[in-house]
């Protein structure tokens, strides 16, 4: 096989890379685009550490051949906010203890963001279901649920004003 030129819009910026079509989107993001915020935990779509948004849909980037992401929009954790300008979900994870070791955190935040995009005020059960594809070994999930609830509440506050 030969390398192909593949163009994607990553975090709002058009990027063109050379890649084999079966390279995993995860590896392309991490190695070719130096977006190492997206993590690999299992390599089999089980843990969610590699979660990104592909055309607005939550996916495990370890299970996406990069050819399938050609001409698509990709949002990674780096596209949500920066330490100086945190997204409200990032802010809530930071403040309420949603992140411990930090390895599941980027994927978890992307999944939480996806959940809130589709359902701005989820019930506790909906939060549990929305995050069930993202495994965390540190927190026991309680602080994460609280962070998502607080982020949702912050949005409600914002939309009310």
């Amino acid at each position: 096989m030969t390398n192909q030129r593949i163009t994607m819009t990553v975090n709002g910026v058009d990027r063109t890379i050379e890649a084999y079509p079966m390279e995993r989107l995860l590896d392309v993001l991490r190695e070719k685009l130096q977006l190492t915020g997206t993590k690999e935990g299992c390599g089999e779509g089980e843990c969610g550490a590699c979660s990104v948004l592909l055309n607005g849909e939550l996916v495990n980037s370890c299970l996406v051949p990069v050819a399938q992401a050609a001409n698509s929009r990709v949002i990674t954790i780096e596209g949500l906010g920066s330490p100086a300008n945190l997204d409200p979900v990032q802010e809530a994870f930071l403040r309420y203890g949603g992140s411990q070791c930090g390895m599941c955190t980027p994927g978890m935040i992307v999944a939480a963001k996806y959940l809130l995009n589709h359902n701005p005020h989820p019930s506790p059960e909906e939060i549990r279901e929305g995050l069930s594809g993202n495994l965390c070994r540190c927190t026991g999930y309680m602080r994460i649920f609280e962070a998502v609830e607080m982020a949702s509440r912050a949005q409600r506050g914002k939309s009310a004003t």
Binding site: G45, N60, L115, L131
Partner: peptide
Amino acid sequence: IGGVANQNR
């Protein structure tokens, strides 16, 4: 099936 990310794919 799986989690949300898997159901999306």
